[in-house]
Amino acid sequence: MRTRNQCRTIAARYTVGEWCSDDGVSAKVTATQWTGLEVLLAKVREGDVFWWRRLIGSG
């Protein structure tokens, strides 16, 4: 699966403390409506690096 390969590429380049994913959310839904984003933002603390990347799967 393409998304898994993209995650491996990111993890090989950066230290990833935790992945947060909102799988299956339609691209028609705005990011502010994604429950996964709300959960992730609740975990972000001072000194953390928040890196947003929209990964597109192959299907």
Results as ranks from 00 to 15, higher is better:
residue 49 V to D: 10
residue 43 K to S: 12
residue 34 W to E: 05
residue 29 V to I: 14
residue 31 A to N: 09
residue 53 R to D: 00
residue 24 G to L: 07
residue 17 G to R: 10
residue 51 W to E: 10
residue 10 I to T: 04
residue 30 T to Y: 05
residue 4 R to V: 09
residue 28 K to R: 15
residue 21 S to M: 12
residue 57 G to M: 02
residue 50 F to A: 14
residue 44 V to I: 15
residue 58 S to E: 13
residue 18 E to P: 01
residue 49 V to P: 03
residue 26 S to I: 06
residue 5 N to V: 09
residue 6 Q to K: 12
residue 9 T to Y: 11
residue 8 R to V: 04
residue 6 Q to D: 02
residue 14 Y to C: 02
residue 34 W to K: 06
residue 20 C to T: 14
residue 39 V to L: 15
residue 56 I to E: 05
residue 13 R to T: 05
residue 13 R to S: 07
residue 58 S to M: 07
residue 30 T to H: 13
residue 11 A to C: 05
residue 53 R to E: 00
residue 38 E to P: 02
residue 26 S to P: 05
residue 46 E to I: 11
residue 14 Y to S: 00
residue 12 A to N: 14
residue 3 T to R: 07
residue 35 T to H: 12
residue 16 V to D: 02
residue 36 G to P: 01
residue 43 K to M: 05
residue 47 G to D: 07
residue 57 G to Q: 02
residue 58 S to R: 10
residue 52 W to Q: 09
residue 13 R to A: 06
residue 5 N to Y: 12
residue 50 F to V: 15
residue 31 A to Y: 10
residue 12 A to K: 09
residue 41 L to V: 11
residue 36 G to M: 05
residue 49 V to R: 11
residue 44 V to H: 14
residue 13 R to D: 02
residue 9 T to N: 12
residue 27 A to K: 08
residue 18 E to L: 09
residue 58 S to Y: 04
residue 46 E to C: 10
residue 2 R to Q: 10
residue 3 T to P: 02
residue 8 R to D: 06
residue 11 A to F: 01
residue 17 G to H: 10
residue 50 F to W: 14
residue 23 D to T: 06
residue 9 T to C: 08
residue 25 V to W: 01
residue 45 R to D: 13
residue 23 D to S: 06
residue 16 V to N: 06
residue 55 L to C: 02
residue 20 C to V: 14
residue 22 D to T: 04
residue 28 K to Q: 10
residue 24 G to P: 03
residue 24 G to C: 03
residue 23 D to W: 09
residue 49 V to E: 08
residue 42 A to N: 15
residue 3 T to M: 06
residue 16 V to A: 03
residue 16 V to Q: 03
residue 55 L to N: 06
residue 7 C to Y: 04
residue 53 R to I: 04
residue 42 A to S: 15
residue 20 C to H: 15
residue 46 E to W: 06
residue 41 L to N: 13
residue 33 Q to K: 14
residue 56 I to T: 01
residue 48 D to G: 06
residue 53 R to F: 00
residue 30 T to S: 12
residue 29 V to H: 05
residue 7 C to V: 01
residue 9 T to S: 11
residue 53 R to S: 01
residue 52 W to C: 04
residue 59 G to S: 10
residue 10 I to H: 00
residue 58 S to N: 10
residue 59 G to P: 04
residue 18 E to Q: 13
residue 23 D to I: 05
residue 39 V to C: 11
residue 8 R to L: 04
residue 30 T to F: 03
residue 2 R to L: 14
residue 7 C to A: 11
residue 15 T to K: 07
residue 14 Y to L: 00
residue 49 V to N: 08
residue 21 S to N: 13
residue 44 V to D: 13
residue 45 R to C: 08
residue 11 A to G: 03
residue 33 Q to C: 12
residue 30 T to M: 05
residue 17 G to T: 13
residue 54 R to Y: 01
residue 17 G to I: 10
residue 8 R to F: 06
residue 3 T to A: 09
residue 47 G to L: 04
residue 15 T to C: 02
residue 37 L to G: 01
residue 31 A to Q: 11
residue 28 K to I: 09
residue 33 Q to R: 15
residue 27 A to I: 06
residue 9 T to I: 09
residue 19 W to F: 04
residue 47 G to I: 05
residue 20 C to R: 12
residue 53 R to Y: 01
residue 40 L to N: 07
residue 48 D to L: 11
residue 37 L to M: 15
residue 13 R to L: 03
residue 44 V to Q: 12
residue 55 L to P: 00
residue 23 D to C: 04
residue 14 Y to W: 08
residue 9 T to G: 07
